[in-house]
Amino acid sequence: MIGYIDTLIQIYTYMLIAYVLLSWLPAAKESFVGEILGKLCEPYLSIFRRFIPPIAGVIDISPLVALIALNFVGQGIAAILLFFMR
């Protein structure tokens, strides 16, 4: 069970990284893959963008904070599952 959660967290992490990299190329973000990643990643990233403004109006660090939070949540879920599976 924990392996599945780790795999899902890892897949979503790769999706977030791909979405951030696609954001550097405006034409790629409008592609089919870019639109799908946008629909899957943007709701999660918008939570962090509400509280973390871009630095100097240009550099958006909210994806970095979102990745760290995702990692902590994944570790927390794994710890809770380990506790209850004993």
Rank of each mutant, 00 (worst) to 15 (best):
Q75D: 15
G38H: 06
N71M: 14
I61P: 04
D6F: 13
Y4P: 04
E35P: 02
I80E: 04
L21F: 11
L25Q: 09
I47P: 02
D60S: 06
A27T: 12
L25G: 01
L67C: 05
Y14G: 13
V20L: 10
N71W: 14
G76P: 02
M85D: 15
A78M: 09
P63G: 05
I9V: 15
E30T: 09
A18K: 07
F32Y: 14
F51D: 10
L37A: 07
G3N: 14
I52Y: 01
L64M: 10
A56F: 11
V73N: 09
R50T: 12
L70D: 07
Y4L: 15
G76I: 02
L16V: 11
G34C: 02
Y44C: 07
L81E: 03
L81S: 00
L67K: 03
P43F: 09
E35I: 12
L70H: 08
K39F: 08
E30R: 13
G3A: 14
F72D: 10
E30P: 00
I11D: 05
I47K: 09
L40F: 01
S23M: 07
D60A: 03
L16H: 04
P53C: 06
G57Q: 03
R86P: 09
G57F: 01
K29Y: 00
K39R: 15
Y19C: 03
R50N: 13
K29R: 11
G57P: 00
I77P: 02
L82W: 11
M15D: 08
R49A: 01
A18I: 11
S62A: 13
K29A: 07
L21R: 08
F72T: 12
L37I: 07
F51Q: 12
L21W: 09
I17P: 01
Y12A: 06
I11Y: 05
I61V: 12
F72N: 11
R49Q: 05
I52L: 10
K29S: 07
D60R: 04
E42P: 06
R86L: 14
F48A: 08
S62V: 06
S46M: 13
I55P: 02
V20C: 12
L70Q: 10
K29T: 04
L82V: 11
D6Q: 15
L40I: 08
S23K: 03
Y12G: 00
A27I: 11
A18T: 10
A27Q: 13
R50I: 11
T13Q: 05
P53H: 02
S46D: 15
V65A: 14
I61R: 07
G38R: 09
F32E: 15
F84N: 12
L25E: 04
L81F: 03
T7G: 13
L40R: 01
T13P: 00
G34E: 03
D60K: 05
M85Q: 15
V33W: 10
D6M: 15
L70W: 07
A69G: 05
I52F: 05
A78S: 13
S23I: 00
Y14Q: 13
L16P: 02
M85S: 15
F84G: 10
I59T: 07
L22E: 02
E42Y: 12
V33P: 04
F32L: 14
S62C: 07
M15W: 09
E42A: 15
L70V: 10
V20E: 08
Y12P: 00
P63R: 05
L67M: 08
R86G: 12
F48P: 04
G34M: 01
A69R: 07
